[in-house]
Amino acid sequence: MKRLFPAPLLTLSLWALWLVLNLSLSPGHLLLGALLGFVAPLMFAPLRPLPVRMRKPGVALKLFLLVGRDVVISNLAVAWGVWRGGHKPPRSAFVKVPLDLHNANGLAALAMITTVVPGTVWSELALDRSVLLMHVFDLDNEAAFIAHFKSAYERPLMEIFQ
C-alpha cells in the first residue's frame, strides 16, 4: 500500500487543493484532482528527504540555544566590523573545514546553521562530503575558527543524526 500511496496526506491535500483552486465539484475536476493527487507523489517519491531519526533531543536543545547565542554575538560583531570598516577593514577569508559528518540531514542542518549565523557563508561542499568551503567575514585565527566550528556545530549534529 505504501508503494501505491507513498504520501497519503499529500495525495489528499493535492486533490483538495485542485478542487479549491477550480471552485468546482464536477466529475471531471473530481477525477483530475484525484489523478493529480495519485500521480504526483509517485513521480516525486525519489525526491522526498530521508527519514530523520533524532537520537538525542537534549543535545538538539543545547545546539539550538548555542546557535541562538552565536547569532546574537555574530550580529553584533558583524555590525561592529561594518561600522569600523574604514578604520580597520575585516579580514575576510575562505576556510576549508574538514568534515566528519556525512549524514544528509545533519549536513542540511549544518548548512542552515552556517546560513543563519552572520559572518559565515556555506560556499561549497566536496563531492565526497569530506571538506566544506566557507567564507568568513572577519577571521582572526583559521585553526581556532575550525576547532570552534567543529566542536560547536558539527560534533553535536553527529550526536543527533549519526
Rank of each mutant, 00 (worst) to 15 (best):
M1N: 11
R3K: 15
L4Y: 13
L4C: 09
P6D: 04
P8L: 06
S13M: 13
L14S: 02
A16P: 04
W18T: 03
L19V: 07
V20H: 12
N22W: 12
L23D: 10
L23I: 09
L25N: 11
G28N: 11
L30F: 08
L31P: 10
L32Y: 09
G33V: 01
A34L: 15
L36R: 03
L36E: 06
G37K: 00
G37N: 02
F38D: 04
V39W: 10
V39S: 10
A40G: 06
P46Y: 07
L47G: 07
L50A: 13
P51V: 06
V52R: 14
V52H: 09
M54D: 08
P57A: 11
G58N: 07
A60H: 03
A60I: 03
L61S: 10
L63Q: 03
L66E: 03
R69Y: 08
D70E: 08
V71G: 00
I73R: 14
S74H: 02
N75M: 07
L76N: 06
V78S: 01
V78H: 01
A79E: 08
W80P: 02
G81I: 03
G81P: 02
G86A: 10
P90G: 02
S92W: 07
K96Y: 11
D100T: 09
H102G: 07
H102T: 12
N103W: 06
A104Y: 10
A108T: 15
L110I: 06
T115K: 12
V116F: 09
V116I: 15
P118L: 05
G119W: 01
V121T: 11
W122R: 01
W122K: 02
S123Q: 15
L125I: 08
A126P: 04
L127P: 09
L133I: 10
L133A: 10
H135G: 05
F137S: 03
D138R: 06
D138W: 05
D140Y: 09
E142Q: 15
A144P: 13
A144G: 12
F145E: 04
A147K: 13
A147F: 13
F149R: 03
P156R: 02
L157W: 01
L157Y: 00
M158F: 05
F161G: 00
F161V: 02
F161P: 02
